[in-house]
C-alpha cells in the first residue's frame, strides 16, 4: 500500500493550532500571498483570533465536511503550508485549496507534490468521482502546476475579480477519477 501522507518533497500532517497561528501571522504580512489565495479583501488577523479558528476547526468538524492538513518538508520538517479538502459526499466531489506561505518556498515543486498527494487522497482514500479547484488568471504559477497534475480547464468566470482597478477572470478546473486513474496507468508521476 502506498503511503498516503508522504510525497517526494513534502508530507501531509495534522493541523496544530499553536504552530498554525504563529505561521499564519507571518504569512498574512505578504499581501501577494493573500491575493493569490483569495479574491476577498486582505486583512490583518490577530494571533489569538487565528488560533481560535484553528481550535474551533479541530473540535467542531466542518460542513460541508472538510479535511484539513498542514504541510511539512521531508528534508527538514519545516511547516511550509496548508492543504484543505471540502467534500460533498452526495455528489461524490471534492474541492481543494492549498497555499505555501513563504515566497522563498514558491516554485520549488512543493505545490505540485502537495496536489499529487491530494489527488491520491481524494480518489483512492475518499473514493470520490471528481476533484475541483478555482484560481485567478494572474496566478500563472498555480496554473502550470495544476496542468502538470492533470487538471483540465473547464471555463472562466469573466471579470469576477477586481484588483488594483483592473478586472481579472477566475479559472475553473477539474479532474475526474477515471482521468486520474489513467494517469497512474500511463506511468505519469
Amino acid at each position: 500500500m502506498k503511503d498516503l501522507f508522504r510525497g517526494e518533497l513534502v508530507r501531509l500532517t495534522l493541523v496544530e493550532p499553536e504552530t498554525g497561528a504563529k505561521a499564519s501571522l507571518l504569512w498574512q504580512r505578504d499581501s501577494e500571498f493573500h491575493r493569490l489565495l483569495d479574491n476577498n479583501p486582505a486583512r490583518s488577523n490577530s494571533e489569538k483570533k487565528i488560533k481560535e479558528w484553528f481550535e474551533k476547526e479541530a473540535e467542531s468538524g466542518f460542513k460541508p465536511e472538510r479535511f484539513a492538513f498542514s504541510v511539512r518538508t521531508l528534508a527538514d520538517d519545516r511547516y511550509i503550508g496548508f492543504l484543505s479538502v471540502w467534500v460533498d459526499l452526495i455528489h461524490s466531489e471534492a474541492w481543494v485549496g492549498l497555499g505555501i506561505g513563504v515566497r522563498e518556498d514558491w516554485s520549488k515543486g512543493y505545490g505540485t507534490d502537495m496536489m499529487r498527494l491530494c489527488q491520491q487522497y481524494v480518489f483512492s482514500e475518499l473514493c470520490l468521482e471528481r476533484l475541483s479547484l478555482g484560481l485567478f488568471e494572474y496566478n500563472s504559477r498555480a496554473l502550470r502546476s495544476y496542468e502538470k497534475c492533470g487538471f483540465r480547464p473547464e471555463g472562466r468566470t469573466r471579470n469576477d475579480t477586481l484588483r488594483e482597478g483592473k478586472r481579472y477572470d477566475s479559472l475553473w478546473m477539474g479532474i475526474l477519477r477515471e482521468e486520474w486513474l489513467q494517469m497512474q496507468d500511463g506511468g505519469v508521476k
Binding site: E129, T157, G174
Partner: peptide, 10 residues
C-alpha cells in the same frame, strides 16, 4: 455559459 463543471452531479 462560462464554465462547464464536467460530471459534477449525480
Amino acid at each position: 455559459q462560462e464554465v462547464c463543471r464536467r460530471s459534477a452531479l449525480e
